[in-house]
Simulated scan of single mutants.
Amino acid sequence: MAAREYGQYCGITRALELIGERWALLLVRDLLVGPRRYSELAAGLPRIPTNILAARLKELQDAGILRRAPRSRVIVYELTPYGRELEPVVLALGAWGFKAMGDPRDEQIITPDSMTMALRTAFRPLVAADLPATVYATRLGPAELLVRVDGAALAVTRGDGPADLTFAAGPGIRRLISGELAPDRAIATGVVEVLHGRGELLDRFASTFHLAAA
């Protein structure tokens, strides 16, 4: 259990005691993408001190939110079923925080796991269900992701591969996802660079992935 206690008998209070310490929810975010080794978690959160990372992992393990598991001779951390129940909470927080993001600061980074969760947050399954299956190869800063949309199903994996549309973008993709910038303007202004495929498919991407801005 986390060290902080609020002295109130309340479900929200208890939730904050379990995941409200700094870095805890970001560890949950990255583990929602998949199991990770200690070194992978540290690399995904480059500013976290090693002693804090070890402490947060122990607290989350003691709370039954994650567990250590052997995988191919290494130990990985993975969410328990109880921990995975946090997914809609994390996605809702991502959508809420998106409204206040603004432009990135110079020291802010994008990681593959944070971008994966951003896409899962913005995904609109009801819209996608009426569109043809599409594969997008995205290069979002240093994050290379293969995004497969098949009806209402979304799969995001690291790396490159065959795709209907391959494009590169920086943090300015926020303006496309928010609807602030139309797909054709995103291409014309260089916010999005189409590397392979028909540029019109960016319209499909923008329809499939959308979050309202403030």
Rank of each mutant, 00 (worst) to 15 (best):
V127S: 01
G141W: 10
T111W: 10
D106L: 15
A69R: 14
L26V: 12
A212W: 09
D160M: 09
G34P: 09
R56S: 10
G44D: 13
S178C: 05
I52D: 05
I110S: 14
T189S: 15
I75Y: 02
Q108M: 10
A169S: 15
R124Y: 01
Y9N: 14
V149R: 11
L53D: 09
F205K: 02
P46F: 03
A163D: 09
G172M: 07
W96I: 06
L25T: 13
E200K: 13
V135P: 01
G190A: 05
R47D: 14
S72T: 02
G199Q: 11
L131P: 01
D184Q: 10
V191Q: 13
P88M: 09
Y82E: 12
I52W: 03
R47P: 00
A15Y: 04
R29G: 00
E21P: 00
L176A: 05
V90R: 07
P112N: 06
W96K: 13
K58M: 11
G170Q: 07
A122D: 12
A214Q: 09
R56F: 10
Q108V: 06
R185P: 00
R105S: 14
K58H: 12
I177P: 01
A2C: 02
T189Q: 12
G170F: 08
K99H: 05
E87C: 03
L145P: 05
P88C: 08
I19Q: 01
Q108N: 04
S207V: 00
P171S: 13
L146Q: 10
I177H: 00
E144T: 14
V74D: 11
L27C: 05
L181Y: 02
L16F: 15
V191D: 10
A182S: 13
A43L: 08
G64R: 07
L201T: 10
D184R: 10
W96Q: 13
F167S: 09
R174P: 00
L154D: 13
A95Y: 06
S114K: 00
V192G: 03
G97V: 00
G94P: 00
V194A: 04
G141M: 08
T157S: 15
Y9G: 00
A129M: 08
P104K: 08
L45M: 14
V127R: 05
H196G: 01
D164A: 14
Q61V: 01
V90E: 05
T208A: 07
L140G: 01
V192A: 03
A163F: 10
I109F: 14
L181V: 13
I110E: 15
A15H: 06
A182Y: 01
L145Y: 05
E78Q: 14
G7F: 04
L202K: 03
D203E: 15
R84S: 12
L32Q: 07
P70M: 01
I12F: 12
A95I: 05
L211P: 04
R47M: 09
P183L: 01
D150A: 15
A153C: 01
P162F: 08
R68L: 07
A24K: 12
R29C: 03
W23R: 02
P104F: 09
L119E: 07
A3W: 04
D103H: 04
L79A: 09
A212C: 02
L146H: 06
G190L: 07
V135E: 02
E193T: 15
